[in-house]
Write a protein that binds this DNA or RNA. Sequence first.
DNA 1: GTTCTAACA
DNA 2: TGTTAGTA
Length: 119
Amino acid sequence: MRISELSRQTGATPRALRYYEEQGLLRPARRSSGYRDYDARAVQTVRHIQLLLSAGLGTTAIGEILPCIVDGTTVLAPTCPELLDALAEERSRITKSMAKLAEARGILDQLIGARANPR
DNA sequence: GTTCTAACA
DNA sequence: TGTTAGTA
């Protein structure tokens, strides 16, 4: 299928799909016309990319994790250690971010003279 | 009409 | 990422 079709099936813009390729996340074949030619598998791959992206992982991390994903239905399977490793790393990153945000909120609470949980 | 690459009022 | 330009 061509880029517009994959875009339609995944919701990713053609621009994003080309970007994923630049990052080595996708390797579509090329037609004699120069147009990218994606196989059906690409749909699943893009969904995996979107999932990992929404988890806060960067394209470089995703590039390392992607090959560890089993061609199951929707989600991924913690196969190789690299995957668990990268995911655990990202998780601790998030935990640290949450701590900083909580601090920032605490300061704002004082400045505002607010109660514990002002939305 | 669609896609491609490259580049940025 | 969007978007636009100039092509193939």
